[in-house]
Each structure stands twice: as C-alpha cells, then as structure tokens.
Design a protein around this nucleic acid. Structure first.
Length: 1039
RNA sequence: GCGGGAAUGGCGGAAUGGUAGACGCGAUGGUCUCAAACACCAUUGGCUGCAAGGUCGUGCGAGUUCGAGUCUCGCUUCCCGCACCA
C-alpha cells in the first residue's frame, strides 16, 4: 500500500480535534511540564518555512514528555497588538482588529497544517479585552507600589504614605527619581493633595514623567531604546530624534540588581544573559564631588570606576548639556562655549556615532579643585561625555583612559603617569591596574587592591563622595502615541493621574474615525468622541507598548478563561513556571528583560511562585533562504562581448583594436577600429539616435567607414556570434561608408548565464534576484521566466550546454529577495510529517542554517521506507507478524530507543532523525515485520511524525491515540553483541581490526591482538613498550 | 575597541578524549522507461597504487596525552551583540 500523506494527515487532524486529544487539564496526578513558544505577532505575510522551526522542535518535546508520563502544557496564542496592523489601518481605514483577525486566521490555517499538539482551547490574544483587562490590572498594581530597598521588594504605596506622615522620607530606602527632595513629616502634611500625589509619582513603579525620548515622526510614536538601531527605527527604518515629552515610564531600574542576579539562576543561553548584563550595565565605582574655584556654591559631581586614578586627573569634562555649563563659563570663554553647545545640540545621534574619533570640545574658563590634592584643573565641555550617563561629567585621567588621552593631546593638557607599570604613555593611554602608584599622594607605593579601600574610606570620611553603583539601564518608556495597544487605565484629574476602579476594567479601546493623531497632535485616542472617565475626566490618551501583554502572557495560558483573576492561584500553583521556553534571540533585551521585570514584581506581590518565570530558554536559529541571481547586461557588456566573442576569435588577421575611451572626452571616439582596414565599429543602443548621428558625422570627417552594431541586435543573436561576425566581415569587404541595421531589434534586455560572466568586467553586468521557483539546481527555467514582467522582451545568453545558470547566495528569507519557501507548499507536496522531520534534520535547532528544498526528498524517501516496513511488498496489504523477533531486530529497536531518547533529552532533533533512518534501513535489510519491534518504533516516531504514527498505531489494532501510549522502555541487554571488533592502533595510527568474543578480559585481548599477522608486520620486529586496551572500544600498541 | 559564539568533504551536518566525515543532499555509473521524472542498486575526503595497501587530512601554530575535531596556550577569519558608559 502506497504511503499517501495527504489522506492520512487530513484524516487524523480531524480525528484529533473531534476527540480532543490535545486538551490539557489543570488537575492531574501526573508531573507537570510547561513548554512555551514565544508567541507570534500575526503579520499579514503569513509563515515562511523558517518560522515553525521552534514550534516543531517544542512540539516534539511536548509529545515526547507526554509519552513519558507528564501532563504537558503546550499552548499557542498571538501577540496581536502592534504597529503593522495600525500602519495598514491608516492606509486602508480598516479597523486593526479586523485585519488582525484575518491574519490570525491565516496563521492558524498554516499552523494546523503542520499537526501541532497545541491545546487551542487555551489560545490567548493580547488584543482581546478579556486578556488586556489583566494587563491593565497589573499596570494598576505597579502604579500602587514602590520599591523598598530595605525590604528588597515592591511594597504598597500606602505604606509609604504612612511613613511620610510619621517621618517624612527620612529613613526610607526607596527607588525614586534622582531629584526627589528630602522632607519631614511636617513638610509632607503641609503639601496639598495634588502636591502629595505629584511627590508620590517619584516613587511609583509606573509613573508619568517629562523626559527625552526617541521620537519617531515617521511612525508617529516614541520608541524604546531597544527599538532603535543605529539612529533609525528597527521597524521601517525611519529617523529617530530626541524629543522632550511626557511619557509613562516603568521603574525597571529599581530591579536592576535583581535582574542581574537572577541571570545566574536560570538555564539560558550565555549570549542572551550577556546581552542582558550589558543592557543593565552595572558598574561599581565611586561618586566624587569637585569644588569649583571661585564658585563656592557649585560642585561638579562625577562618577568613576577608577577612583584609584584620581591623582592623575588633569582636567574635567562636562557634557555640553550639563546644568553648570552656563554658570561656570567665564565671559572670555562664553562665545566659544555657547558656540560649541549649539553645534553639539545640532548634531544627530548618527553624526555623533560616525565621528567618534574626532576630538572636539571647549574650555569653560573655570577650574575645579581635585579634593585629593587640591590641584586646580581646567573644566572643559565636550560631547564625548554623555549627558544621560552618570552625572554627565567626568574627571579626565589621560594616562589611563584613551578618550581622555586623545582629548589631552588635542588640547595640550598634561598627562601624568600614576602607576609604575604604565607604558608608552606618549603613544596611548595605558589602563592597567598592575604595579604600584606614583604621583598619587597617600597611595604612592600601594597596589590597586590596597589603594581602593583607603580611597573610599578617605572619601566618605571627608564627605566628598561615596562608593556607588551606576547602571546604564534607564527606566523604560511605557507610552506609545498609537491606537492599536492597551489603553492605560488612568484618567487625569487636576493634572494628576488617577487609576480607574478595578471593577471598571477592562478599559476598552474606543472607536475612532481615523487612526492618526488629532489636529492638535494628541494621540489617536484623542479622536474618540465623548471618551471621558465618568463623563468628565480626560483619559490617558497614549497606549501601552508592544511588550506589555507579552510580559505576563505565560500565566494566562494556565487559566485562560478566568474572569476573576489573571489566573487562579490553583492553576498557578500547579503549573508554577515555564520549564522550557523557546524563541528567537532578537528578543534578548526587549521581551525577555521586561517580562523578567514584571515577573519579579508579581513575585513580590505574592502573585506568582517563582522569581524567574522561565527555567530554561533555547534560542532557535534562523532558517535562511537560498537566493538565486541572474545577471543583466549593461551598456558596457555589449562592447566587451563584441571584443571577446567576435573580434578576437574571428578577425585577428585584420588587427582589431579596442579604442580606449578617455574619461573627459568631448569629441567622440569609436569603440573599435582595424589596423588593416578603415572600418570603425560603434556598439550602441538603437534608442540613442543622437549619439549615432554624432558618430556618423565624426566618422565622415575622419574619413572612416562606420559599422553601427545595436546592443539589441547583438542580444537577439547573442548565442550565435558568427551572425555578428558575418556582418562585420561583409562591412570589411565592402566599400560602403555606413552600415546599420534597419530592422527593429526584438530584445529589450539581455541576461547572461552565470558561468559565462567571469570573462566580463563587473561593471558590465547587474546582479538581480530571481524568484527561486524558476530555478532548479541553479538552472533557470528560461521558458517560464520569459513569461514574467522581470524578463519581458529579454534574451538569454546560454552556456555551452544550452543552459542558463544562476548564481546563488544564502540570505535572510524575505519576499524582497524572492527566496521565500512556504510551509504550505512543503506540506502539500511531501506531507506535514515529512516537513516536520526535514526541518529538524537540517541541523541543530540553535544555529542558523540555509533551507534547501532539494534535501527534503531524503526524508520523504525515508518515510516511505518506514511505512513500507508494515506492508507486504507484493500484495500491498498491511502485514505485521506476531512472531518472536530476532536478536538483531531487537538490537536495532533498542539502539533506536536509546539514541532517540538521549537525543530528545538533549534537544538534538537532527540526530534523532538520522537514528530513525538507520533503524529503518537496518530493519528493512533484516526484512523485519514483527509487531514486537514495529509497534514500539511507531511510538518512538510519534513525536516527530504524529500523523503516520497515528495511522499505523490504529492499523496495529489500537483504538485510542498513539499520544496516550507509553514511551518504549530501553532494555540494555538487547544492545549486547556476541563479539566485539577492536580497532587496533600502533602508536596512535589505525592499522586494522580484531574481532574477539564479547567480554574477553583485557590481557587475553592483548594476546589475541599481538598474535595478528598485521600487527607483527607493522611492528616490524620492534619491541612493544605498552599496550592500552580500552574495554569494548579500542586497542593501542605503543612500540 | 569590549563581550559572546563559531570554523569538519561540493552542500546541510555526525562524532561521552578512543576507527573523523554517521545520516541526508548533490555528483558519477548502472537498472527500469520509447524518453523524461520517480524509484531502485553501486561508488563518492585528497593524493598514490592493478590490487592488498600506503599516505595526507577537522582554519593556522605550539602543547598535554598511549591516543586530540574534542582539552590547554597563542594566532587568523567569520557571525552575533554592545559601544565615546567614565
């Protein structure tokens, strides 16, 4: 019976659905296993062959764990708020909810094609009010809490208020804005209600603030730092500018230390952890306050990680935006400084990044006093100091810091060595910590380890500074001036943000007439008519960013329909945390950091049991496309063609000459001439009538006879250079003075087979993507290509075999590169089981690898062979015998059980597929059709090829699903063989094999090996120094 | 510049310190076919040899080891991330 995936796959998908085979319950005596895919944004483009990679791998793991006796949660949903749907809405006026639903339907249809074991009754969508109700709810909790550093957790803001009423903010260690003043209980009580609320905003974990943000006019919204790459938006590549705006922010900085420490507790890829560490950017150092000479009130505070170098500080540098710049600048320097400040402000981020090597700056005229040695050092401003990091000021130590060194060189400032180990300070800074200090006051002669504690002690004693930890990470902007996102459950009363009541959730996204900002520049929600809290207060008009819903969605899957809570405590207690999370590494700092932050917060509130929600994380690598390219001839090509293919081969006896073209020539030169003939040749497009006329008259006045060859007529006969040669020969032998074809040429453009292009210069050809569906094995289907617009009126220069060869490259899969492979087509042609297995077979999940549709035939053939094991070759009838299996058959089976089990556990799916192929080939050559072998094999393959497994399982007489079966047990006894073949090495080189009975003791193996003829021959009579016998593995003789 | 990762046939890739190249693609030859496609069989790292075999071979150079693709040190190249972060 023929293996026909189309029939059986369809049948079982319906059966699974009807029998609710993938329904997961929350109460089970079985151990739980929670497996999660990063949910997709449902884009309009649908899935390409690379997208389901992670889903397939995790589906295999899910099915495997289930067969191993676990209750497995393997859900899927959609991150369905987002910019593309809104951009589309702006263009078409369609509500984003409508297009989002359509896109989800496409995704679902594609996913259903592949046979996943998702429990679709648990599907979530972040844009669904029953979901975003809880996103808003968590937001409200954040608003109502502050971070208490003493308790090291979030606490209710009410407790903070109580403290304020009793003691002011003395004795409170809380995460708050930098500019929070100190106040007493009396101060607090003296404040108006509004002032109190404004003060509390400095503590709340989410709060509105005026700040510089990444404003993207092209998208009409602000972007978070991780959505900006190289000064343009990650999505769409629009320019981004710094703009001061009022924004909601999340006080993620309060959790910086915990987010950093938590990384050590999770099994995540090192690169992701490293990226997060980098993003958090913790640096330990000290802050030091410098007095300014002649400005008793002013102090410049700096942050440094190298307090030990402070005696080498020979100047200070402030960011141009630093608050003290105007105050410190002397009148003599004012013009220069103001000029520099203006210039720096005018520079975009892109310019700044592009010119990091150029030293710029200006002297303020002021001098700061180094508190350690009372030295007066000049204060400069320069834009290599960033206003946004630390205090926006640095103490410059040119001997230890390359940027300071560059600056000192440029402005001729002193460079003082501070460690005796510093070298070549006239060439570059030396940041070493080795050696002993010199020129460094009371730390002279000490090492770095000795000096640091003394310096800190001294600093804190004098009250001039203190040890400090600085983070690169900023609080996260949480507003988008957009429509298609979660409304913020806040209204504004007297300029103060207030939460709506909990029982008023969800705050629904209102209808608007257009998805554009209002005329006054308000976000789109400003268009909603009559949208007021209790009819009188303005709602917050910005919406939440994309990462809001994805920061907690993994809990919703546990209990997706709950209306009383984001998930019931029972459900959360049962499922706990995600055991295995899989998704792309591009979310390293966006989703994966913010979601950890929310989870820590929810953990503080006792809402969730674990600090880290995902125990293990795996990044699947991208599947790249294989693009094909064709080469289109440019002007210059035709000239080269005439030279290489016509003049050189056919006309050497006339002495053909390539006339060199001078670049700035006004007068005209011809392309070719002959030494022994007065004929000249010009190669030109027939469309260039002006040029042809000019040449014609030039030729006439030169007394030359002219042959004009049109590019297009050359293209018409491109595969027959003799035709052109014939034209030239006729012209050479004629007496006429002008030759030009009157016939209208047909070809509009010419494409050249890749294997012919090496003869031509790179400028003569343009490389263009061609749709890979027209290409087989790098050979272009010329007949089909000619139908396309891209090749309308085209001629193809074929190679000697009459083929048109394309070049190829591995690139990201994308529509614009014409290299997209659609999983639907793979499933249609080879079946879902085959597609699933091939996707795994390509290589390790974690690494990027190119897709090659050709290779799928290998897996297709395997599945057919596997299927064939169960059927009689001649009659085609299902034919499985109940006979006792042989030892060889059992060994093949148990080898497969062992290898596949081990490899799934270590997430090595590609080798699993190989093991199935090996087992199948072996059983086929053994002609095995024994139930005792084949039935366990069906269970073994079920996670990979669920459809074919289900079909065979039922044919084997079962009426329940193969999903409910038990993973076959490994019996090591079946792996044992009667004899062992020892490879024999002499001095580490393989010389032969010796077969001995299994279990032969090492000394006897030695004797048997030494008795071998090939061993004696290779030893050549020399003495044996030592024999190493590794039992069951190898023998090595040291001679 | 800093950090992380990688480098194995024509290609994707295998290999608890123990026979390098499993498995598959591609290629070559053959069977089937009027033919093509499919399918099936065989060969397939390089050099050398009629053959048995020999010899070289996991980016480069050292080292540890009876034995190194694997471990250590030093380099080269590529990919990813971060980047005037004080």
């Amino acid at each position: 019976m023929e293996y026909n995936p189309r029939d059986i796959e369809q049948k079982w998908r319906i059966w699974w659905q009807e029998n609710q085979v993938y329904k997961v319950l929350n109460d089970s005596s079985k151990p739980k296993f929670y497996l999660l895919n990063m949910f997709p944004y449902p884009s309009g483009a649908g899935l390409h062959v690379g997208h389901p990679l992670g889903y397939i791998a995790s589906d295999i793991l899910a099915r495997y764990k289930r067969l191993r006796g676990y209750n497995v949660l393997n859900p899927m949903g959609y991150d369905s708020f987002g910019l593309p749907a809104e951009q589309y809405a702006i263009q078409t006026g369609q509500h984003p909810a409508v297009t989002t639903d359509q896109n989800i339907a496409t995704f679902r249809r594609q996913l259903d094609n592949i046979g996943f074991s998702f429990d679709w009754s648990r599907e979530v969508r972040t844009s669904d009010p029953s979901f975003y109700k809880w996103t808003q709810w968590i937001f409200m909790r954040l608003f109502e809490h502050y971070y208490d550093k003493t308790a090291d957790k979030a606490l209710p803001i009410k407790q903070l208020v109580q403290h304020f009423e009793q003691k002011g903010n003395a004795g409170i260690q809380a995460a708050c804005d930098e500019d929070t003043p100190s106040f007493s209980a009396a101060d607090w009580k003296a404040l108006s209600e509004k002032e109190q609320q404004e003060l509390l905003l400095k503590y709340r974990l989410t709060f509105p603030e005026e700040s510089f943000v990444n404003w993207c006019p092209g998208l009409g919204t602000v972007l978070s730092n991780d959505e900006v790459k190289d000064g343009v938006s990650e999505r769409g590549g629009f320019p981004v500018e710094r703009k001061r705006m009022k924004q909601w922010a999340m006080r993620i900085t309060a959790y910086a230390d915990r987010l950093l420490a938590g990384l050590d507790t999770v099994d995540w890829p090192e690169s992701i952890k490293e990226q997060q560490r980098n993003w958090i950017g913790r640096s330990q150092g000290a802050s030091v306050r410098f007095a300014v000479d002649g400005h008793p009130g002013a102090e410049i505070e700096v942050f440094t990680t190298r307090l030990d170098t402070i005696f080498g500080a020979t100047f200070m540098v402030l960011a141009p935006e630093h608050d003290l710049v105007a105050q410190l600048t002397t009148d003599a320097q004012r013009a220069e400084v103001e000029g520099y400040v203006r210039w720096a402000a005018s520079r975009s981020d892109i310019e700044r990044m592009a010119e990091t090597k150029k030293v710029t700056g200006a002297f303020t005229g002021a001098y700061a006093v180094n508190p350690f040695n009372d030295q007066k050092i000049p204060v400069y401003i320069a834009d290599y100091v960033l206003a946004g990091y630390g205090t926006g000021a640095v103490m410059a130590v040119p001997s230890g810091d390359q940027r300071d060194w560059n600056f000192a060189q440029h402005f001729k400032l002193p460079i003082i060595p501070i460690l005796d180990a510093q070298q070549n300070l006239d060439e570059a800074a030396d940041p070493t910590k080795e050696g002993r200090y010199v020129n460094s006051g009371f730390i002279n002669g000490l090492s770095y380890q000795e000096a640091m504690p003394r310096l800190i002690e001294w600093l804190e004693e004098k009250g001039l500074g203190q040890a400090k930890v600085q983070y690169k990470m900023r609080n996260a902007v949480f507003s988008r001036q957009r429509y298609w996102g979660e409304p913020v459950p806040v209204y504004w009363k007297d300029g103060v943000p207030c939460l709506i009541e909990e029982n008023e959730l969800p705050l629904l996204l209102p209808q608007v007439d257009k998805y554009l900002p209002t005329e006054t520049g308000e976000p789109p929600l400003g268009r909603a008519e009559g949208w007021k809290y209790r009819g009188q207060y303005e709602y917050e008009l910005s919406t939440m960013p994309g990462w809001a819903g994805s920061s907690w969605y993994f809990y919703r899957y546990m209990d997706p329909q709950n209306e009383q809570a984001f998930a019931s405590p029972e459900a959360i207690r049962y499922w706990q945390q995600v055991d295995f999370y899989i998704g792309g590494s591009e979310h390293a700092t966006g989703h994966l950091l913010y979601s950890r932050f929310w989870n820590h917060f929810m953990h503080d509130l006792g809402l969730v049991p674990e600090r880290e929600y995902a125990r293990k994380l795996v990044n699947q690598g991208m599947i790249q496309g294989r693009s094909s390219f064709v080469f289109r001839a440019r002007e210059h090509f035709y000239e080269e063609y005439v030279w290489i293919k016509v003049l050189q081969p056919f006309f050497t006896e006339f002495g053909p000459i390539q006339v060199p073209v001078s670049k700035a020539e006004e007068e005209y030169k011809y392309d070719f001439a002959f030494e022994s003939n007065d004929l000249v040749i010009e190669v030109v497009s027939y469309k260039q009538t002006d040029k042809i006329e000019r040449i014609r008259s030039a030729a006439a006045s030169d007394g030359k006879r002219l042959l004009v060859l049109f590019n297009e007529e050359l293209a018409d006969t491109i595969n027959e250079p003799e035709t052109t040669a014939e034209k030239i020969r006729r012209a050479l032998n004629s007496r006429e003075t002008f030759f030009m074809s009157n016939a209208q040429p047909k070809a509009e453009r010419l494409f050249v087979s890749h294997n012919l292009t090496s003869k031509y210069s790179p400028e003569s050809l343009t490389k263009l993507h061609v749709d890979i569906s027209l290409v087989d094995n790098d050979v272009l289907d010329v007949a089909r290509a000619a139908q396309l617009n891209q090749f309308a009126g085209a001629t193809f220069k074929l190679d000697a075999d009459g083929k048109f060869i394309c070049s190829s490259e591995v690139e990201k899969m994308s529509k614009s590169k014409f290299n997209v492979v659609n999983p639907d087509d793979m499933v249609e042609q080879y079946g879902a089981d085959c597609y699933r297995m091939y996707e795994m077979f390509l290589g390790p999940i974690e690494v990027a690898k190119p897709w090659d549709t050709k290779g799928i035939t290998g897996v297709s053939g395997f599945l057919r062979k596997f299927w064939g094991l169960f059927f009689d070759e001649k009659s085609g009838a299902f034919n499985v015998a109940d006979d006792e299996p042989t030892r060889d058959e059992l060994r093949a089976l148990h080898t497969a059980i062992k290898k596949v089990s081990d490899d799934i556990e270590r997430f090595s799916m590609n080798t699993c597929v190989s093991h199935f192929m090996i087992a199948t080939n072996e059983l086929r050559s053994l002609k095995c059709n024994k139930r005792a072998v084949l039935e366990p094999l069906v269970v073994l393959i079920a996670p990979f090829a669920p459809h074919v497994a289900e079909e065979l399982w039922h044919r084997l007489g079962h009426s329940d699903s193969v999903c409910a079966a038990q993973w076959p047990a490994l019996n090591e006894a079946h792996l044992v063989t009667d004899t062992v073949v020892y490879p024999v090495q002499i001095n580490g080189k393989l010389r032969g094999n010796v077969e001995v009975p299994a279990g032969t003791p090492a000394p006897e193996v030695e004797q048997m090996v030494l008795a071998q003829e090939f061993v004696q021959r290779n030893l050549g009579g020399g003495a044996v120094k030592k024999i190493i016998v590794v039992p069951g593995r190898i023998v090595n003789i040291v001679a």
